[in-house]
């Protein structure tokens, strides 16, 4: 019996015997996006948006789904990534990769430092403190007009072509090439997360999720693991944020606002927060719905709110969670 429970817990890991066909199909679909998305009535930028927000949701889910600790402040690290990349491109360098790296580092380090202050809290208190700390960055971006453009957001930068010597990839104007750039970064980030989760570290996180007290009695340094998981998820969110700034050539103070944190969490929950890939699916559904609803009505906020309520009341396991039940209660 205990092995059955153990195996079910380990089902959450991204790699297992019976998961590879699904994963392979997913990657195939992601690689073929420029072919099938226009045919399905979308456009490649929308797919890029879904991919970037999906990465943020997967980053958040590294914490939420694998340690059970819930952060409602991840928009801050997402937004810091966006501003880091934007400021770097605007004032310092013409290198897209360097900007991406700076954004990731800025958001990730901020998350790591603040994370150390809050890892001891749990439950709603943890959520409250993460929101409150996250809002600090929103107010800084909002008030520091001369640097960040304040309420209007940071404009006046554009992603630059990638290039080494004479070999240049023009991701600046070619949407398809830029999508593949996003996908490459996405692959590296998710690969790193999957690698982390399949290591003893990842199994320890699941042990904490399953029974924190027992993990503590076994002598596992619970706080340190949660802090590390928080840090990893902040780095991933910051990467996603930096990509988001590159995608839009714009950094918006609302990317730092806690309402985006809520949206990232609902993406993760809607897709299935107990699964590795669920948040990506949730993000895709969310982005498409938001795009569609906001094109037909000005009251799109009500519909998004309704989506929150419906997911919570009727689909708490999320889309992949329902698929993956396999008879389990």
């Amino acid at each position: 019996m205990s092995t059955a429970i153990g195996e079910r817990a380990l089902d959450r890991l991204p790699v297992s015997r019976y998961k590879w066909p699904g994963t392979a199909l997913l990657w195939l679909a992601l690689l073929m996006v420029p072919l099938w998305v226009p045919w399905a009535g979308g456009y490649v930028e929308l797919a890029g948006r879904a991919l970037v927000l999906g990465l943020a949701a997967m980053g958040l889910n590294f914490l939420l789904g694998f340690t059970g600790v819930m952060s409602f402040g991840h928009a801050a690290y997402f937004g810091l990534g966006a501003y880091g990349a934007g400021l770097m491109l605007k004032y310092v360098t013409g290198s897209t990769l360097l900007a991406l790296f700076t954004g990731t580092l800025l958001g990730g380090l901020a998350g790591t430092i603040l994370g150390a202050l809050i890892v001891r809290r749990r439950g709603v208190y943890f959520a409250m403190v993460t929101i409150a700390y996250g809002q600090i960055f929103f107010y800084i971006a909002y008030r520091w007009n001369s640097l960040t453009g304040g309420d209007d957001g940071l404009r006046g930068f554009a992603r630059q072509p990638l290039g080494v010597g004479s070999w240049v990839i023009n991701i600046q104007n070619n949407a398809t090439l830029f999508y593949y750039f996003l996908l490459a970064v996405f692959a590296i980030a998710t690969g790193a997360m999957a690698f982390r989760l399949c290591s003893p570290f990842g199994r320890t996180l699941i042990a904490i999720l399953e029974n924190e007290r027992r993990a503590r009695y076994l002598g596992l340094p619970v706080e340190r693991h949660i802090w590390l998981a928080f840090s990893v998820s902040c780095f991933v969110c910051a990467t996603a944020g930096a990509l988001y700034a590159l995608l839009n050539n714009f950094a918006d103070p609302m990317t730092l606002h806690y309402s985006l944190s809520g949206e990232i969490v609902i993406m993760a929950v809607m897709g299935g927060m107990r699964t590795f890939w669920g948040p990506l699916l949730g993000a895709a559904v969310f982005v498409v719905l938001q795009d569609y609803i906001s094109s037909i009505t000005v009251n799109w906020m009500s519909f998004i709110g309704l989506l929150f309520v419906l997911v919570v009341l009727f689909f708490p396991r999320g889309l992949l969670g329902i698929l993956g039940q396999r008879g389990a209660p």
Binding site: M70, G123, S259, M301, S302, G305, V309, V312
Partner: peptide, 19 residues
């Protein structure tokens, strides 16, 4: 239930009420 659900629920309510 997991506290994340209550947060998301009131979050959605906030959107609906504001709109």
């Amino acid at each position: 239930r997991d506290p994340v659900y209550s947060l998301l629920l009131t979050f959605g309510l906030a959107f609906i009420l504001q709109d």
